[in-house]
């Protein structure tokens, strides 16, 4: 990240902050609906260690599930692209799995894994792997057949075709899926925390929600946004390093 990206990122944040404060002051919004940003930031500052550890816990859960989902999704996409029989048998199961609402899934996961990081990661995984699978498959299948022919004329086998052509060529689509999945992984981790977790942004959000602590609700929302941004930034950095060759994203 260069010195130029920082102001580019900070400017919209500053704008949102100004709009927030301005709206609260200008329209006299009741703090019950939207407390002043100052107050929310104050609440976070007052309990900084608590918010920091909640941020890290949820980030760890979401990242673990996201990473697993990405790995399984990419491996699945590759396998489906190479084994049409497997694809016919297993891909429909993947599709069916996505028809189970994540909330119902959460109730099962808490029975299986209890109150562990694995439980939240499992839900984040559940929301992540499918879009990555589908996009990896589509990316591999969209490879220019002339390029495949060229590499074959050089004597390339399927393994070389995969590593030297198909996978790199599918990377832009894989990253599109990863960008879409990053917020899903966060949502998964937060939903996972709604099933009896002791730590994390989702647990904080739930406590604030049911105790009607409006300031704490907004503080938890900001913390969740921070986790989402961190996850997104990880994906964006990886993308910039791996898909550097694609035109300006």
């Amino acid at each position: 990240m260069s010195w130029r990206t920082l102001p580019r990122l900070a400017a919209p944040l500053l704008l949102i902050a100004l709009l927030w404060e301005g709206a609260v002051l200008g329209f006299g919004i009741s703090p019950f609906y939207l407390p002043p940003l100052r107050q929310v930031l104050g609440a976070i500052a007052a309990l900084w260690p608590a918010y920091q550890s909640a941020f890290l816990v949820t980030l760890a859960e979401a990242t673990a599930g996201f990473a697993m989902g990405a790995l399984v999704g990419i491996a699945g996409g590759i396998a489906f692209a190479h084994l049409p029989r497997l694809r016919r048998m297993v891909l429909p199961l993947f599709v069916v799995s996505q028809t189970v609402p994540v909330i119902a899934f959460g109730a099962i996961v808490v029975l299986w894994f209890g109150n562990t990081l694995a439980a939240k990661a499992a839900i984040a995984f559940y929301l992540t792997f499918f879009p990555v699978t589908v996009n990896t498959l589509a990316g591999i299948e969209a490879v220019d057949p002339r390029q495949v022919a060229l590499l074959r004329s050089f004597g390339a086998g399927s393994r070389e075709l995969l590593w030297k052509l198909r996978l790199p060529a599918a990377l832009p689509r894989i990253f599109t899926a990863l960008r879409l999945s990053a917020p899903l992984a966060l949502a998964g981790a937060i939903v996972g925390e709604w099933f009896g977790a002791t730590q994390g942004v989702g647990a904080m959000l739930l406590a604030a929600l049911f105790n009607e602590q409006v300031v704490a609700i907004w503080a938890a929302i900001l913390a969740a946004a921070a986790v989402g941004s961190a996850l997104f930034a990880l994906v964006a950095l990886a993308e910039r390093a791996l898909v550097f060759w694609r035109e300006e994203l």
């Binding site: 074959r152 004329s153 050089f154």
Partner: peptide, 17 residues
């Protein structure tokens, strides 16, 4: 014949990465 004759297609088909 695969790999025995050097083949250059119409498009350059260079790999952008």
């Amino acid at each position: 014949l695969l790999g025995r004759i050097a083949f250059m297609p119409q498009r350059d088909l260079l790999l952008p990465w």
